[in-house]
Amino acid sequence: MASDNHEFRHESLEDRTSIAKYLNALSEAFANGNLTFGHNGHAIELEPRGLLKFDVKATRKRGAVKVSIRLNWQEDEEDRDPSVGSLVISTSGEGK
């Protein structure tokens, strides 16, 4: 698991044909469950699991158009903090 506090950012100019390879790359990465963003020998490796919060927003204001796609998720708490104990109800016997 990658350590915390990493950041990656990419910016480029594309057209509606050239954008497809980026969207496909993201789509495949989610399907594989492994998403790697690299730069200068550093990489953020993400393994989307559990619930993904998916947020699409489209706005058009006087010709200025924006489509934002946002994905959030929580990594497993136990992975980040192994001290989190889990609770168990014993079903073994009659109890008391």
Binding site: L87, I89, S90, T91, E94, G95, K96
Partner: peptide, 9 residues
């Protein structure tokens, strides 16, 4: 929690 489990069962 254990009492809950025992009672429900």
């Amino acid at each position: 929690l254990q009492a809950l489990g025992t009672t429900l069962r």
